[in-house]
């Protein structure tokens, strides 16, 4: 019995680590610029397709290390330009928060169907990042899951390092904490917004690559991710990175254990029940600052 619980615990950890990577990216944009990105799921698919193009279509040498090395700048530029092109112009308007949701929803529709036109409706598969299973007595962990866990956590740590130790990162934090103050001290707000969008695109894109090699890529595959990331960020507190981290692992565990005890069909109900209960008690989520 104890082994079964360990098994489920590992499952929760794996799910949680991926959720964490996704949710941190989403919460970051909201925290810094209050923009809610509906196309987040499509950016996830974009990561997967980029990996597919490099690994399978082109057959690039160098494996996933090469894919990551090429995908990161690509995603960064894509995110940056997207923000500049369609979100920045809206910011001057009074009802821009709704408009951002709408425009990113339009972008999601465009991108998802663009994927379908370009790559076809069928799923694409990628070679696993690592094969084999580690067996410890009764418990086993696949090397694939371990890589996902390790890379997700390193992604988040790298992101933390950027926030704390680089000029851009510090500027991002400054804007998040006090947009007007940041402006006064001469931080170029618009550039920071775009850079934040770029960083968050990288986070979700990496998540897309990591998961594509286990769960595959398909044109409409991003919606699930959007909804889950959304629930996690709201649960953890929108804009709070630490809150998102805790929330991701808590909900990962919840998903694994509810699936184990009650069945998979209850997972979604349970997620929303927990979310609603949390928001009823704490409207700003676990650690949110902006209520």
């Amino acid at each position: 019995m104890i082994y079964e619980y360990l098994d489920i615990f590992i499952s929760g950890l794996t799910i949680g680590s991926v959720y964490a990577l996704m949710a941190v990216g989403l919460t970051l944009i909201y925290g810094v610029s209050r923009a809610f990105n509906f196309a987040y799921g499509s950016f996830y698919s974009l990561g997967g397709y980029i990996a597919w193009i490099f690994m399978v279509a082109i057959g690039l040498r160098g494996g996933y290390a090469m894919v990551f090395a090429l995908a990161v700048p690509l995603l960064m530029v894509f995110g940056y330009l997207t923000e500049k092109a369609i979100i920045a112009p809206l910011r001057r308007r009074s009802d821009w928060e709704v408009k951002v949701m709408m425009i990113t929803l339009g972008l999601a529709l465009f991108m998802d169907n663009g994927f379908q036109v370009l790559f076809g409706p069928r799923m694409k598969s990628l070679p696993p990042i690592m094969e084999g299973v580690i067996v410890l007595g009764e418990v086993y962990i696949t090397k694939q899951d371990m890589m996902i866990f390790v890379l997700s956590i390193s992604g988040i740590l790298a992101f933390r390092w950027i926030l704390n130790n680089t000029r851009t990162g510090m500027a991002v934090r400054a804007v998040a904490q006090n947009p007007n103050g940041a402006k006064i001290v001469g931080i170029p707000k618009d550039k920071i917004f775009a850079a934040t969008f770029g960083i968050s695109t990288v986070m979700v894109g990496i998540g897309g690559i990591l998961l594509a090699q286990k769960y595959f890529v398909s044109p409409m595959g991003g919606w699930d991710i959007l909804v889950k990331s959304w629930v996690i960020t709201a649960f953890g507190g929108m804009g709070s990175i630490r809150g998102s981290l805790y929330a991701a692992f808590l909900l990962g565990m919840l998903e694994a254990f509810v699936g184990y005890w009650f069945g998979m069909s209850w997972v979604l109900f349970a997620l929303f029940a927990v979310l609603l209960a949390t928001l009823a008690i704490r409207p700003q989520g676990l650690m949110g600052k902006w209520g």
């Binding site: 098994d7 489920i8 590992i10 499952s11 794996t14 799910i15 694994a256 069945g263 998979m264 069909s265």
Partner: peptide, 19 residues
Amino acid sequence: EVVPYGTREWRSVMTRIRR
């Protein structure tokens, strides 16, 4: 088990199957 489309993490079901 009745599962929604999009289910791709099966470990909790596998654990029960193995039992």
